[in-house]
Structure formats: structure tokens, C-alpha cells
Design a protein around this nucleic acid. Structure first.
Lengths: 334, 334
DNA sequence: AATCGCTTTGAAAAGGTTTTCTTGAAAAGG
DNA sequence: CCTTTTCAAGAAAACCTTTTCAAAGCGATT
């Protein structure tokens, strides 16, 4: 049997109240007894029962993280950041991977509710009313990460997708490219899809290159889709000399497609990615891309959630992290 | 305030015992009262308090997973498999990323102990006596994944590293290569390092190519290290026409190095990786590699843990999953 | 009519901790 | 030397549920 506070008390020959005090307010118990208790704790390898504690504090000291796809490299950085923040804050972390499945997500919220997690970080998905209402009914505080909500006032942490996309496209334009395509996210069920498309359009308009506005194909998160989209894009628009991709995985898909067609990157076509995943620096050619501070975003989301949980309010509702263009080998002067 | 069983009892005008029975043994309470209780539960959105329940059942219905490096693509497949198994078994999953830090791992075990997880899957790391003893002292059942222990009798799930390495090297030999190098794992703190090296040696010996036995450099998990190791390997042994890498990330590092030296892969040098990560199929060239069934391994590890937890024993102590050579573009006939 | 057995229900204990309340002893003050 | 104050530490209540035990009600059997 796991030792309880009673066993410690017996071994140290004090009452259980004293043992409890040693753990929660050590100064209030006299040194001689304190060391006896500490020794007993050490000897028994005593660890307080978190169920009993939770019953009293009504807190689990656990945060939940909901991500759409753990096989997407984007989230590993987020997880690391959030986990480090959790350690700092004294919380545990429970990660759930929804596989972009609505029912699965809903049932994870139930699980979180039952396990009494103290708060949830909800990453990347659209905040549908069903989710929102369920979360509110369960009285679980939550913040949004890499997504936001126009309908509800929910704290969020994200980058400025429109500006980031603008910067990427502007960079290609400054390189002299005049025929620029794009591989985007499908707009339905996507938060970052529309603003990134708008950034693309704004950069084109400013440079008088509106004729590229419809040279866009969408894909759904995976390499294979991007490969396929690249095929469609270049079949319709063989004149393209540059492609802006809203994800590094898409950029890899595009480059693979071009490679299979014996088109040189960046020799004949420049490709810019998005996210700056760890692979962006391992791919051949290394990807020019928009860097998102994934680690910091995960960290910050946890801090913000904590702020929200403890104070009931939040300094900035919608927090913007800064992005940065990283120039590597997949882009070149026209 | 969250409603309790008392509130439900009051509203339904029965005792709390009756409410509890409605939830745990519905047939034992007469229909009229049962519907009253059910209505009250519905109206109050009552959800039993898992702390109180845990206190009684002494179970958290949560499993823990300890992985060394969440940024290593290898583990995402494992996580998915284990998570699916957990859903099937009715458990939640708590993932902790140790960053290969001993103290961090130890403190995660404490956290698991405190949170009373019912069992742990311990992935990839060496089972040091400290860990083992701590786990045993905490009385937490655990199984090993992609690792095993010679000293202790602990259930484990892994592939046959020696045979897998042998297969990879044999494949290169059959392709006509006679000068074969290897990028391995440092042997200290590595479980799969030595057997994979032995597989390499056995394949060489069988073919009378022992002279390659020392053309080995080791690296520590990351791309950059492998790049550097490749530099050392080819500086010392420029005659090499093939390299066996014990990780896909190493293969990418080697190929990147060769690319920077204008050596063609697979034109001049063949490279074989290990793991068959999702990127292996996205890299240029696509990697020839040894596939491990990561998803199945994660799934199986959870099942095995459950078997161990519930029955106190396990059918096969050390379970071997099968690997498979996948031939893609990074290798070629000599 | 009395006893037995069955079903249904409520009261109460148990599970491990924190915290409030109380008590006893020692220190301080006159 | 006696009273007051302070401090340390124990007893007990509270947190919420499940489960055991006992009792009550009721039909059936003798």
C-alpha cells in the first residue's frame, strides 16, 4: 500500500496535522519535529495523495492542450514551450490530439471536464459554437493558440498572418518575381487561410501584380496534397517563377513536384514556406520561410491561461507574437 | 459551484446512496425514483467528482508516457498509437518530454506518482537503476518501449535492432557495395546503438568485408551532429560508396553533407536510413530505410501495460515487432 | 398468524488531505 | 509568584463519492 500521511505521522510520532504543516508551512513547526517528519517522509517515500488534495483545493493542477495533428511538426515546438511553462507554473500537462475530428475533440473536452483540468489551450482549430458552449458549460477557462474568435471574447495568442504572408510575398516581389503563385489552406475550417491569402493579395496589389490573384491552389495540411496542388497550379500556370506556400510542408511538396519535373529550385522557381519548422533547415534546398516563434507561443499561451485562471482577466485579449522572414536556399533573384 | 451528488439527491428527493446507485447499478433502484434522479442529473448538468472517485477506487484511469525528445519525429507515431489504445481502454494519456534530462525524468516520475497514474510507458531511454528503483518504490507498473533491460525483468516492446541493421547493410552489400560506412549512436546511454552496430558487423563478416568494421562515426540524435559525423567519416574514408545510418535524421544529415560537397546521392554514394519517419518520404531523394511500426508499437505498449496492470503478468515479456526494408531513392546498384 | 426471504432504501463509514478550533505549555510581564 | 500572551501541536470537521450494513416493507410459505 502507498504510505499515507498517517504512516508518516506514526513513524515521526506526531499528529497528521503536524505532518501536513511540515509540507505546507514548515516555519510553523519546531525544528526537532520537522526533521523527524522530513526523515519519515524520505524513508517512506511519501507522496501526498493528489485525489485527497484535489478534493480540498478543487484544483487538479493540470492543464489541457488540444491539438489537431500531432504528426504535424508545427505542434512539437508548441508542446515544448507549453510544457516548460507548465513546469514553471507548477502544473502538469495533458495533451490530446484530435486528428481534426469533431467528435473526438468533444469527447476530449468531456475527459478534461471529468479529470477537472484547470484550464485548456485550444490550438489551431476553428472555435465552433458547439465547442465554445460546451467549454463554457463545463466552466473550464481556455485560451486560443494560433487561432482566435470573432464571435466570442476569448484570449488568444497568434501571429499576424496577414502581415506575415505580405512579407513573404513582398520578399519575392523585391527579388524581381512577377509571376507568383500560392498554395494556401482551404478556407472552410481554417483560421489562418483567409488572412494569409489577403496578405498575398495586398502585396500583389501594391506592386501592380494583381494578375496573379487567382493563381492559387489550396491543400489540406499534408505534403501529398501540396504535391498534387502544385501539379494543378503549374499545369494551369506554367509561367510561374515563384510560389508562396502557407506551410513548410507545402513548400516541400511543391519542391518535390518541381524536382520530379526537372525544374530547378531556386534556379528556375523560388519557393517560400511558412512556420520555420525544424525540417526547413534540413531540407534540400533549405527553405526560405516565415518563422513563427512556436516555442514562445506555447509558453505564452500557458502563461496567459494561467493569468486568466487566477485573476479572471487578461491584460491583452488578443496577443500578437512577431514573425520573421528567414532567407535560405529555396529563393533567388529573378 | 459545481453541483454535487447532494444537490442531485435533494432535487430528486432521495438519499445520496440512491443517486450513486442510479449511476453505478441502475437496475437496483425502482423506476419512479430512477427517472427523478436522471432528470435531476440532467437539469443540474451533474458530473461526478473524479477526485472523490479516485480516493475510493485508488485509480486515476490515466497512463503516463515518457519520451526523450518530442521534437524527434519518431515519437509522434508512437504517441498516436498509444493515444488510440488509451481511448479503446478507457484511459487518459499524460505525455512527458524529458529532453534527455535525467533530473527532469526523475521529477516527471514524481509527478506521475503524485497524480497517481496507473501505469507508465517508458520510451527509448536506458533503464538506469535509479529510474528502475524509483519506479518500483513508487509501485507504478511500467513497460519499456524501443528499449529493454538486461538487468531487470520488465515487459518491453521493440524491434530486433541487430537484425534490422543487418538487413539494411546486407541490402547495400547485395547492391554491390564494398566500401560501406556507418553513422551510429554513441554507445553510452544508448540501447539500440550496440545491436545496430553488431548487425552492421555481422553483415560485413558474412560477406568478407570486415575491413569496413571501423568506418563508423557516432552522432547524438540530431541532424547537425550527423552532418558533422559525415564530414569526419568521408574525410577519413573518401573511398566509401555507401553509408548505413541508424536514424533517418542522420541519413538526411549525411545526404546534406554530400550535397554540399557535390557528391551525388544515390549517384555516387548510397545512403540507408532507419525508422521510416514521415519525412523519409518527403526528403529529396526519398530515403531508403528500415521501417519501424511506430504506431503499432505505441498501441501495443499501451495494451501490454494494461495487461500488466490488470493481470499482474504478461504473456510475452519481451515482445518483438517486425521491421521492414523500404527501398526508395537514396540507394542504388554500385 | 407468525416466520422467512426478498427488494428497496437510508444511514454511516471509509478514503487522505487541509484547515479551523482548541488545548496545553512555555514565555513574558507585573 | 501569578496572570496574560504567544506558540506549537493535536482533534475534528470538511471535501465528495462508493459501499457496507441495517432496517423497513411486503409477499409468500408454513
Amino acid at each position: 500500500m502507498k504510505p499515507t500521511i498517517r504512516d508518516v505521522a506514526k513513524m515521526a510520532e506526531v499528529s497528521i496535522s503536524t505532518v501536513s504543516r511540515v509540507m505546507n508551512a514548515p516555519e510553523s513547526v519546531i525544528e526537532s519535529k520537522r526533521v523527524r517528519v522530513l526523515e519519515a517522509i524520505e524513508k517512506l517515500q511519501y507522496q501526498p495523495n493528489s485525489f485527497a488534495r484535489g478534493l480540498i483545493y478543487k484544483k487538479s493542477f493540470t492543464l489541457g492542450l488540444l491539438i489537431p495533428d500531432i504528426e504535424n511538426f508545427y505542434y512539437t515546438g508548441i508542446i515544448r514551450g507549453m510544457q516548460d511553462a507548465c513546469i514553471k507554473l507548477g502544473y502538469s500537462l495533458m495533451i490530446c490530439n484530435t486528428d481534426r475530428d469533431k467528435n473526438r475533440l468533444l469527447s476530449y473536452i468531456d475527459a478534461f471536464h471529468e479529470k477537472q483540468v484547470d484550464g485548456i489551450v485550444f490550438a489551431s482549430d476553428v472555435m465552433f459554437p458547439e465547442y465554445y458552449e460546451k467549454l463554457v458549460r463545463c466552466r473550464i477557462p481556455f485560451v486560443l493558440l494560433s487561432t482566435h474568435s470573432d464571435e466570442y471574447d476569448v484570449p488568444s495568442v497568434e501571429i499576424d498572418d496577414e502581415a506575415a504572408a505580405y512579407d513573404a510575398v513582398k520578399f519575392l516581389i523585391d527579388l524581381g518575381h512577377e509571376d507568383i503563385g500560392m498554395i494556401g489552406f482551404n478556407h472552410e475550417n481554417s483560421i489562418s487561410g483567409p488572412p494569409r491569402y489577403q496578405g498575398f493579395i495586398r502585396a500583389l496589389s501594391e506592386a501592380g501584380l494583381e494578375h496573379n490573384g487567382n493563381k492559387v491552389k489550396n491543400a489540406t495540411h499534408r505534403f501529398e496534397h501540396a504535391y498534387h496542388a502544385a501539379h494543378e497550379l503549374f499545369t494551369e500556370h506554367p509561367e510561374l517563377t515563384a510560389v508562396f506556400c502557407v506551410a513548410d510542408e507545402f513548400a516541400m511538396g511543391v519542391i518535390s513536384y518541381l524536382k520530379d519535373r526537372n525544374v530547378l529550385v531556386p534556379g528556375q522557381v523560388s519557393v517560400v514556406g511558412f512556420d520555420n519548422l525544424r525540417v526547413a533547415n534540413m531540407f534540400i534546398p533549405k527553405l526560405t520561410t516565415i518563422a513563427q516563434p512556436m516555442y514562445d507561443m506555447g509558453y505564452r499561451a500557458a502563461e496567459k491561461l494561467h493569468e486568466w485562471m487566477t485573476t479572471g482577466s487578461v491584460e491583452v485579449l488578443r496577443e500578437r507574437m512577431s514573425h520573421k522572414l528567414i532567407v535560405r536556399e529555396s529563393s533567388r533573384q529573378r
